[in-house]
Nucleic acid binder design. Structure first.
Lengths: 233, 233
DNA sequence: AGCTCGCGTAAAAATGTCGTAAAAAATTCG
DNA sequence: CGAATTTTTTACGACATTTTTACGCGAGCT
């Protein structure tokens, strides 16, 4: 079950804080990527597409505030700031720059984990104002449990497959262009590698369509992109 | 404009804290409802439909934790807990019960306001669904879904056909010259290759007109260009 | 009449996209 | 560390779209 492990990007330069967080987070079932500087963090965010970012404000190269703004130019991924600065002004600036939460060091591991759960809960429910469960004919996707059911049988999807599916679900009915899908699923640096799409769309069709060669759900709009068909008139 | 002011529900029993928050929040353009106990707060939340809830944990009747859980049974409205309890265990319990944020008293007004903005930002991005549908007689074009319907039947258009159609729609009723159309659909390099237009205009008429030879929508203005006719007299 | 010009139509050739399979590389897990 | 899973790379036939090319029609002009 690799798809239910959330990926966390930690941008932090102090080795001993990194070590503490590595143990805490991995011990609670998260996968972790680490970056020791701002630019590196931005690159990692773009290429690895994590589920959440933990960001230290005092970085060796660029300021954490700047990292927040640069991230917010293209993604709504949750950002939790971890900082030794306890001035109210610092908190306000970070939050208004786009951070979702702000913890002052030192903080307890339990509180951090709880706030991570809050942030992840947001992304889970954010795209499902109606329901956290998406139903389309014999296909059921539980966005909270990250569980995909087909005719009441659980279907295992790889992380990318699942991400692609939920991205289509979030924009159900609408055509999504190649670059939109690439940006949301693989990250913005992969925009022109759109042949990945064909491969993973084929995987989804094989796992979820009755007749993969003649898909009912995963429709291609030639030259444009794909869409999840929801209305059968 | 009272309607575009966000409505905040404050559930808090201490009069002096209520007074402080009333001044702070109303001073920053929010409308405020106050409840001094848990049950009252739950009722207010259900009847007044606020945009956000500020919740004190230490209430005279039921515990703030319980209020959080009861709210979460039916609504995803942001809850920010304000509490004097600074034990980590209290924070974790509140956040896991469904609270979105937790501030320990005493807190600065600026930080509270910033965290309110964060919470409102979350709900704002959720409802980011717009509709842009163009209707002309039995023809319907959904510009968001990129879907064209004719008599409730879906019509497939190629990328160029669709771009040509939407270009005409954007200038509905007005005549567009050959070069204008060429520029917008094919790009400025193709301005003089205007015989492409005849071919694709024919395609559109075949796909969307009842009698392609005698078009009702896609009208040629000889020597000038084409226009999409919208008014039938 | 004969000619030209803009328009509509039709069918080819050329180009690019899509679906598929399968091997190589990377990552995760025990 | 080695096995298993997942992602990336590579290749190719089938197909859809765009572009090219060709022809017919009618209006206006000489």
């Amino acid at each position: 079950m690799a798809e239910d492990k959330r990926l966390i990007l930690l941008i932090e330069d102090e080795p001993q804080m990194r070590r503490f967080l590595r143990i805490t987070l991995q011990g609670h079932g998260y996968r972790l990527i680490e970056a020791v500087a701002g630019e590196e963090g931005l690159t990692q965010a773009a290429t690895r597409n994590p589920d959440i970012v933990l960001l230290d404000l005092g970085l060796p190269d660029i300021d954490g505030l700047e990292v927040t703004k640069r991230l917010r130019e293209w993604t709504q991924i949750p950002i939790i700031v971890l900082s030794a600065r306890e001035q109210e002004e610092d908190k306000i600036r970070a939050l208004d720059a786009g951070a979702d939460d702000y913890l002052t060091k030192p903080f307890g591991a339990g509180e951090l984990l709880a706030r991570i759960r809050v942030a992840l809960r947001h992304t889970a429910t954010q795209h499902g104002e109606e329901e956290a469960v998406f139903v389309l004919d014999n296909l059921t996707v539980d966005l909270v449990k990250r569980q995909v059911m087909l005719d009441n049988r659980e279907i295992h999807l790889t992380p990318i497959e699942y991400r692609l599916l939920t991205t289509l679900i979030r924009h159900a009915g609408k055509v999504m262009t190649h670059s939109q899908l690439m940006k949301e699923v693989w990250g913005p640096v992969y925009v022109n590698q759109s042949h990945y799409l064909r491969i993973y769309m084929a995987q989804l069709r094989h796992k979820l369509e009755a007749d993969p060669a003649r898909p009912r759900f995963f429709i291609n709009e030639p030259g444009v992109g794909y869409r999840l068909k929801v209305d059968f008139d």
